[in-house]
Write a protein that binds this DNA or RNA. Structure first.
Lengths: 195, 195
DNA sequence: GTCTATATACGGATAGAC
DNA sequence: GTCTATCCGTATATAGAC
């Protein structure tokens, strides 16, 4: 750390992302300055522009990377065959993934307003892909006769809002174990769409 | 409107609040300047300081007023006696109140990070009061034997997150009528905590 | 109560040395 | 790749005239 100048591309790049997501989650995109992010990383503000063309791209990349890795993680999960098991699987997956990335989740949900129209559209498409995954499960369950909902799209959004809301108050170091939280939410989700 | 100077306290005061809540809902607190709010009201930036000591107070007042009027509206509702009817009543009340004040709801949920510690604490207390209202209903239903949840506090937060999430996508001029939306959510809520 | 003008600070982004 | 220095715009908030 004594060194004041030099090349650290491999190290600095990830550090910029990490510092940005943490600071933006805490204070909000508009309230965080490039100078703050730079200070957190341990460089001067000008150096950040070796890693992002501008502040907007920094935000967009954070959100896109989060959603892409969410979708990618979901796609590589082994899926059960019947709808009830698939719903339980989705619920557990969603809770675990989101609790393990509290800052990213927060940014991805709170900073949509600060995206340019073009970037917003891309992020919305990714989010829609994720909603489709849950909606497919609900539709399958209705076909199987084990679920009943009046509108699968609305129910999908309602369930995701319920599950994601957990990120707004639950911290993994809290009194309730994640296992227990999962059990509580599983019970709510299962019954909410039960036939 | 030709007039450039004069006293308009009764008119300007509410206009400042209205402009602030709309602009903050759209762009975020940190991204909105006092100059923007002033332009929306039709005065110069300096004039705003006749109505708020600073920008922080403007935000805090918006959020406090919203929550106080939410609690006040809820308290003046006539409550049914049995738990199932009370849950349905709460659900309908919540949806209607929140859909009729989309901007305030948005600000009250999204801008918590931008409150000072002291102001945040006050807002959190008000929110807790509202959560208590729903939790009391869930507890009553369990006592009556008509509801079953593993944890009333977690279930309360889950249900409120689900209901409030509606504000994030539903617009009253959308394809789905509010009546239908209420029916869909009522079904989900009722079943989620059913015994 | 509102205006104009301004004090003072900080913002994003760039240029050029090393 | 990072630094220092800087351009230029905008921010909150205040002072004093009307």
């Amino acid at each position: 750390m004594a060194r004041k100048q030099g090349s650290h591309s491999d190290i600095t790049g990830p550090k910029v992302q990490a510092a940005a997501v943490r600071l933006i989650a805490q204070h909000g995109y508009a309230a965080v300055s490039m100078r703050q992010i730079a200070a957190e990383v341990g460089v001067q503000a000008g150096a950040l522009y070796n890693y992002t063309p501008d502040k907007q791209s920094l935000l967009f990349d954070l959100m896109r990377d989060h959603l892409v890795s969410l979708l990618s993680a979901w796609q590589s999960e082994q899926k059960p065959s019947d709808a009830i098991a698939r719903l339980e699987h989705f619920t557990r997956f969603h809770i675990r993934f989101h609790l393990s990335r509290a800052d990213q989740v927060f940014v991805a949900y709170m900073e949509l307003r600060n995206l340019t129209a073009e970037n917003f559209s891309i992020i919305e498409d990714l989010r829609r892909d994720y909603e489709d995954a849950l909606e497919a499960i609900l539709r399958a369950g209705i076909t199987e006769g084990v679920f009943a909902t009046q509108d699968t799209r609305v129910a999908t959004r309602a369930l995701i809002a319920m599950l994601t809301g957990l990120s707004n108050w639950y911290r993994t170091d809290g009194a309730l174990e994640t296992e227990r939280i999962e059990a509580i939410y599983l019970d709510l989700v299962r019954k909410a769409v039960s036939g």
